[in-house]
Design a protein around this nucleic acid. Structure first.
Lengths: 199, 199
DNA sequence: CGTGTAGTTGATAGTGCTCAATTTTAGTGG
DNA sequence: CCACTAAAATTGAGCACTATCAACTACACG
């Protein structure tokens, strides 16, 4: 997957992608993780300039939707326009949650929070059942999402395992105690606007 | 100013407002700063549930626009709808920049970055001239924006003053060297989508 | 003047980073 | 099926940045 252009947006069909910002010294920070069903750069439809990159963290399958096509479809159905706008708004809400975690949560809490979010998002698209899911990204990539060093990321994952709330072997994650993880993460899923039984 | 409702959105006419998330232990993190001309919670128009609070950091004047009115106006002018969508997208782009700073920038760099952003945004609405502007918020509030403790915020401001790039007395901020501040902040204003001579 | 808020300072502790190895895992070719 | 290799994960040690705690100062306001 290449950097997004300004003429089409990327709808992820399979795999995991991310938005990334790389500083001059080479430090990378991810500002979003995307899974199947996510419109990775829909905001490119209304923004003239995109400031960040999009990368595939696993092999990805995606559909690139021309902006001309989006314009056409929205013209026919204003309701769909509202829906797409809402998608970008939920995206922004997730970013706010990341900001709160980055600013005020210690690593363990932040990691727990991210797992809660990922679980609910994957569950929504039937990629998680029974509090289990596959998270096929490396610890370095997770570190870039949480703003941590790889070493500390590793130690934080071990710390989370030690709580017993989550079992995590390779890419397989299983939440052993959803309530416990929620409490550790101080998680409130309202921001995901899922309209589901989960919170 | 009270917490935003789901039936109207707040257009800030004067003053400084912020979005805030408060954790269970009382730690506060701001996820956005808003100045005159900003639509503080326009995302509330397309989101069913708002997860965060909005507070006034100074005395504020604001216009509350009923969502029914927005719906009506957009119905008449789809272009305006696009424009409003874009506003929320720029808002999200700013959040991404905050994420990158929170995750990967040390306090001094982060502070410099925020000042660059604030200057350009204020300049856009004629609230800054000649690299000077008023920033009438306390150091505690700034600390909540940058995810720092008040003590460290204070020391970081002193460190910035010591560079000579900025003079900062009370609420009056004057950028002495724009290029120097840009360099310190590693700032690239593309994300603000200003279409201006500044970057 | 007293009082409260904002700003400042010093000292200490803690969380997370860096550097440098080492071990484990997964993938490859023999 | 096993040796080989590269990537990923893990560990240890020391250091840096930031937090916390506790005063203390400066200033505005009644």
């Amino acid at each position: 997957m290449s950097r997004s252009t300004l003429t089409e947006s990327c709808l992820l069909v399979d795999g995991i992608a991310a938005r990334e910002t790389v500083s001059r010294e080479g430090k990378r920070q991810l500002s979003a993780l995307h899974f199947a069903g996510d419109f990775v750069d829909l905001h490119g439809f209304v923004l003239k300039e995109i400031d960040h990159g999009v990368t595939a963290l696993t092999d990805c399958t995606a559909v690139f939707v021309p902006h001309t096509e989006i314009t056409r479809v929205i013209g026919q159905s204003p309701a769909l326009g509202r829906a797409l706008w809402m998608l970008t708004a939920v995206d922004a809400a997730i970013q706010r949650a990341w900001i709160a975690c980055l600013g005020r949560s210690p690593a363990l809490t932040h990691l727990a929070h991210l797992l809660c979010e990922i679980y609910l998002r994957l569950h929504l698209v039937d990629l998680a059942w029974g509090y289990r899911f596959s998270l096929a990204i490396t610890q370095v990539e997770l570190a870039d999402a949480l703003g941590l060093s790889p070493v500390h990321m590793n130690r934080t994952i071990q710390e989370l395992r030690a709580t017993g709330l989550v079992s995590w072997n390779g890419f397989d994650v299983a939440i052993q105690s959803w309530d416990g993880l929620l409490a550790l993460a101080e998680f409130d899923g309202t921001y995901l606007n899922l309209v589901q039984r989960f919170r």
